[in-house]
Design a protein around this nucleic acid. Structure first.
Lengths: 133, 133
DNA sequence: GCAGACTACATGCACATGCATCGAGTGCAA
DNA sequence: TTGCACTCGATGCATGTGCATGTAGTCTGC
């Protein structure tokens, strides 16, 4: 019976995660759409900006990004392609491993991120507010 | 500074949710794939089985389902179509509102659900184990 | 009873994602 | 040096999703 109960709790916890995730992602996509980017796009920009502030390193390897945003390598490759086409990031050769690609955020990318950030934080605050910590 | 700190916490919490969600959904999809269904499919079957046990009502309106699994109406419509094609659920007319559709789980659907359930619970237990409650 | 607004579900379409694969580059062993 | 297994990132393809719309049925006010 204890096992029964913990199974119930497990399922409820999972349903809770599913619910918050769905509501927040949906809201995020909707709100950010007016700036021409989606939730995943912002996540990448956010990592890029954070990473630069952190160590001054202006560039990320694609796989470094992949491990931080939860996207397959192919999805990330295309996402970077879209951001590049919009002028928010640049792809550059990686001198120490010529297979690799260095992704760097542009000034325009920083500006877009700065524009969107307050909105994104507000959505997070709103959607995560009434949650059990 | 307190505001700064709480923003950090907010973002970290969100990243955490993103991480658990991505890992769990991915694992779930992979594990359940051998039974020919995905994570969303199971969620629907789960609701159906639960609902029947609950009140004996053998049928759900599509919109009742939509409010429980976090899917758009169109996605749900197609998902039900797939389940129907596999013989796991049936679509029936709704006598009191002929626009509506009643979705009922079949014996085969119950069987599939019973097969998959332990595996799904195990994945949840594994992925949600090392989490702050 | 009828016209028009509304609701329930299905479907056309655009698009993001994951898997498998490819081409290029690296590094190790013979 | 050459050959081979491996890694990195890009791309073809199948699929699942959401938005907008279509079709059928309901309800309200006259």
């Amino acid at each position: 019976m204890a096992a029964k109960k913990s199974e119930r709790m497990l399922v409820d916890e999972w349903r809770g995660i599913l619910a918050v995730h769905a509501r927040t992602t949906c809201e995020l996509d909707r709100e950010l759409h007016q700036y021409g980017i989606g939730a995943s796009d912002f996540e990448v920009l956010d990592v890029l900006v954070e990473g630069c502030a952190e160590d001054g390193g202006t560039a990320f390897r694609v796989q470094d990004l992949a491990s931080r945003v939860h996207l397959s390598q192919s999805a990330l490759s295309r996402l970077i392609g879209r951001l590049e086409k919009e002028g928010l990031v640049t792809r550059g050769m990686c001198s120490e491993d010529r297979r690799g690609v260095r992704v760097a955020i542009t000034d325009q990318g920083r500006a877009r991120h700065a524009d969107v950030r307050p909105l994104q934080r507000a959505v997070l605050a709103r959607m995560l507010a009434d949650r059990p910590s």
